[in-house]
């Protein structure tokens, strides 16, 4: 008697095929102009922004793009500005937590966090909204140091887009408390009495200006086709990944073309920029509709 192997259900067959031949599996979807998660090639995933999730931070934001989750928190400290004497400073740090993806648990150092840190930092500082003078409390004596820490909690593609969005959300939600500088040089919360130093500081917590919020869209190129907002699977299959950062006026503020010896055609480049401008409108709407909680 011959043993008869029951044919596996269609679901698990597809699952096995996906594991064994991920590129073929994906290309079959691509040939039908669709993607395994049901999106069209240029369709992006929904994004969400929640503000004020961490009460120990001076401002915070939890953002999601599809499954990709990033939490951003700002801590304010006080420093003595030296050079130039009327500017505060900003320190950005991006970390991939050990829990964000299966690759991270080996604790192998990768260059990804420093790459993201550098890119987010460039996006924030490059924007016209970034005015280090606004962080000055009293020239030569005290200024705010803004520590912006970003943690990737779930990595499913487009980490840069998520980090930039989280950074913008947290910085937009940041309110600087009115403070006084005492004669001894200490910074204390402002009382209602007249300023000791004679300068006019706002008595209400004030926000940093936020024109021209830069936001990023990442596209992947697979088989010479442009795929917007790729998941981590799609990123790993892609020949190259292009991240375009644009501001509110549609100006390109950064373009990152990573990986592969693949040439990016001018047509694709133009397509990336147009897609990033469209995505900016979407993300900006999400960002603006996020309400800070009342404390």
């Amino acid at each position: 008697m011959t043993a008869r192997v029951d044919s596996a259900p269609a679901d698990s067959q597809a699952e096995a095929f996906k594991r064994l031949y991920p590129d073929q599996y994906y290309r079959r979807f691509l040939s039908q102009n669709t993607r395994p998660d049901g999106r069209s090639l240029t369709q992006t995933r929904p994004a969400s922004v929640v503000l004020g999730v961490i009460t120990s931070a001076d401002s915070s934001a939890l953002i999601k793009i599809g499954n990709t989750t990033v939490i951003a928190g700002v801590k304010l400290e006080v420093l003595m500005p030296k050079d130039p004497p009327d500017q505060g400073c900003l320190q950005v740090n991006v970390e991939l937590t050990t829990l964000c993806s299966p690759e991270m648990r080996d604790n192998r150092p990768t260059e990804v966090p420093s790459f993201l840190t550098q890119q987010v930092d460039a996006a924030v500082r490059g924007s016209s909204a970034w005015q280090p003078q606004a962080l000055c409390i009293q020239a030569g004596r005290a200024a705010w140091a803004v520590y912006l820490d970003l943690y990737v909690l779930c990595a499913d593609g487009v980490l840069l887009d998520a980090c930039v969005l989280a950074a913008m959300a947290a910085l937009n939600a940041l309110r600087l408390a009115p403070v006084d500088v005492t004669d001894a040089g200490n910074v204390v919360a402002a009382g209602n009495d007249a300023m000791t130093d004679g300068t006019s500081h706002p008595q209400q917590p004030y926000a940093l200006s936020k024109q021209g919020t830069p936001l990023t869209l990442t596209c992947a190129v697979i088989d010479d086709r442009l795929i917007a907002d790729p998941s981590s699977e799609e990123e790993s299959l892609a020949a190259t990944v292009v991240s375009t950062t644009v501001d509110g006026q549609g100006h390109v503020m950064g373009l990152q073309h990573a990986g592969g010896g693949v040439e990016l055609s001018t047509a694709h480049l133009q397509q990336c920029i147009t897609a990033a401008q469209d995505r900016h409108t979407d993300l900006f709407r999400v960002l603006s509709s996020a309400q800070p909680p009342d404390h």
Partner: peptide, 23 residues
């Protein structure tokens, strides 16, 4: 809470907020 993990949870006790993923 973490789609990439075998299992995960997010727990909040007022201001204590913890996220855990199992691989």
């Amino acid at each position: 809470s973490v789609s990439q993990a075998s299992g995960s949870s997010y727990v909040e006790f007022d201001n204590t907020k913890v996220i855990v993923a199992i691989y």
